[in-house]
Simulated assay, not measured.
Amino acid sequence: MVKRWMLCGWLMGLGLAAQADEAASLRDAYAARAGVSAATLIPEGEQLFRAGGTGERHCTACHTDDPTQDGKTRVGKRIAPMAPAANPARFTDPAKVEKWFGRNCKDVLARACSDREKAAVIAWLMSLETRK
């Protein structure tokens, strides 16, 4: 007989796996539209996250240098970690992903992000692990 707590743990594991699959599917869809392999984009994603932007605007201004940790908006509102390892719900809702890439790319790069850039950022963030 399966213990109730074991069943709950197994179901939670399935939920986390499904969320990781969603993020990977989104990353791979962007990469396919860009005609590249997502695995090759990890360094490009880190570069874009850390150094991309114009003037004072860059991703780390709100999301911090460590995307496994909370960030803050310019008005001090908490932003959940960007790395899926620290925030399994990240990159699971395509509409939200498009909304935030649209808004943040315009703020940071003064233009829309390309599919390649979106795939690169997601690939890098998915490669990060949380600190113990």
Rank of each mutant, 00 (worst) to 15 (best):
M1Y: 13
V2L: 08
R4H: 00
R4F: 01
M6S: 03
L7M: 04
G9Y: 03
W10F: 10
M12S: 12
M12H: 14
G13K: 10
L14G: 15
L14D: 11
G15D: 08
Q19T: 10
A20Y: 01
D21N: 10
D21W: 11
A23I: 09
A24T: 09
S25V: 11
R27C: 05
R27Y: 05
R27V: 09
D28W: 06
A29G: 13
A31Y: 04
A32E: 15
A34D: 05
G35T: 03
S37Y: 02
A38Q: 00
A38C: 01
A38M: 04
L41R: 13
I42F: 00
I42H: 01
I42M: 02
P43V: 15
G45A: 08
G45D: 04
G45N: 07
E46R: 06
E46Y: 03
Q47M: 09
Q47C: 02
L48A: 09
F49C: 05
G52W: 02
G53L: 04
T54Q: 11
T54W: 06
G55Y: 10
G55K: 12
R57K: 13
R57N: 12
H58N: 14
C59P: 05
C59E: 02
T60F: 00
T60R: 07
A61N: 14
A61Y: 11
T64I: 03
T68K: 06
Q69R: 12
D70V: 11
D70P: 11
K72H: 09
K77F: 03
R78V: 11
I79K: 06
A80C: 09
A80S: 15
M82P: 03
M82W: 09
M82S: 12
A83Y: 03
A83C: 01
P84N: 04
A85M: 03
A86K: 12
A86I: 09
P88N: 09
A89M: 13
R90F: 06
F91L: 11
F91Y: 13
D93H: 07
D93A: 06
P94V: 00
A95K: 08
A95C: 05
A95D: 02
A95G: 03
V97D: 02
E98I: 08
K99G: 01
W100F: 15
G102N: 10
G102F: 13
R103M: 08
R103I: 07
N104A: 12
N104Q: 12
C105D: 05
C105S: 06
K106E: 14
D107W: 04
V108N: 08
L109A: 11
A112K: 12
D115S: 01
D115K: 00
R116L: 07
R116Q: 14
A119P: 12
A120Q: 06
V121L: 15
V121K: 14
W124R: 08
S127V: 08
E129S: 15
T130K: 15
T130L: 15
R131D: 12
K132S: 14
K132C: 14
